[in-house]
Design a protein around this nucleic acid. Structure first.
Lengths: 154, 154
DNA sequence: GGCAGATAAGTTGTGCGCAATGTAATTGTG
DNA sequence: CACAATTACATTGCGCACAACTTATCTGCC
């Protein structure tokens, strides 16, 4: 397979096609967060803050490092974001006793309760997307492979 | 098909699925710009600046409004971005004579010449994506429909 | 035990991305 | 013609996103 004259990565008009795909990715991502925005406004959250809350709603507490690994964000992004979530009274940060380098992020009662108020959002997004469940599933799968390939290329 | 008990937009575990798709979109978009970054660093450009240059390389001059419509960006983003491109000596901004509200963005010789230095980037991206041309094409098409649906839902 | 290197967070600086606002020019309408 | 509404662009403010750097803690190795 490695000696095929045309590789199985795109060769045919790759520049234009690829440029369109990357721009389509960039546009779709912006469009999705734009649809989230008015819904998240009612919770007082931004989209990245919502992502952090989703992780914490699943399992809690989480260290800053764990949050960063789940979401692909570094401490330069997470530290001020978590400080804002703490100022909103949704989370608490405490130094770990076992490892004083670590900071554990806990949900407050208010933070845990916010989960219920957010429950309608995913369905609203799915409706706005206008794709079938099968298409969404395939899109997710393709994007996953794309992201993995892009990461491994570095 | 429309009278099926399950609508053709996702119903089955829509929350989790949709959340995964939106996060996959967010992650893939970040991964793509991360792959662009070292290549664009050599041109002294960021990804949004590169997008503006791509538009100008196609046709020139363009007003700020036209650039904004092509890229889905407003003047709050474009004004400072164009100011930085101008500081780099890649573009010039001139008030239109016919309509003094408009600002036309022109490529400088240096800005036009940069196109050649960027010619290898799209192929490098296509290689890093690790998807076949057919998959890339289908991804672009699906993302296009998704973006359109998300925009029209507002 | 002591110290070099690794690890975890935080800080700083730059550049988007977007809402809200301001200013100037143009267009539409009576 | 006058003037209200619209349009084009710029500015301000806030929150990511990330590179680079700093500080504190821990681990491995001698």
């Amino acid at each position: 397979m490695t000696d095929a004259p045309i590789s199985n990565t795109a060769r045919l008009d790759a520049p234009r096609l690829n440029r369109q795909v990357c721009f389509a990715l960039y546009s779709a991502s912006k469009a999705a967060t734009a649809v989230y925005r008015p819904m998240l406004d009612e919770l007082g959250l931004t989209y990245p803050q919502y992502l952090v809350m989703l992780v914490l709603w699943e399992d809690q507490p989480r260290s800053v490092r764990e949050l960063g690994e789940e979401l692909g964000l570094d401490s330069g992004t997470l530290s001020p974001l978590l400080k804002r979530l703490e100022a909103l009274g949704l989370v608490e940060r405490r130094r770990s006793a076992e490892d004083e380098r670590r900071v554990e992020v806990f949900l407050t009662d208010s933070g845990a309760a916010l989960s219920a108020k957010s429950s309608a959002i995913p369905q609203q997004l799915a409706d706005a997307a206008g794709l079938s469940a099968a298409e969404l599933d395939q899109l997710r799968e393709t994007l996953g492979r794309l992201t993995a390939a892009l990461h491994s290329s570095r």
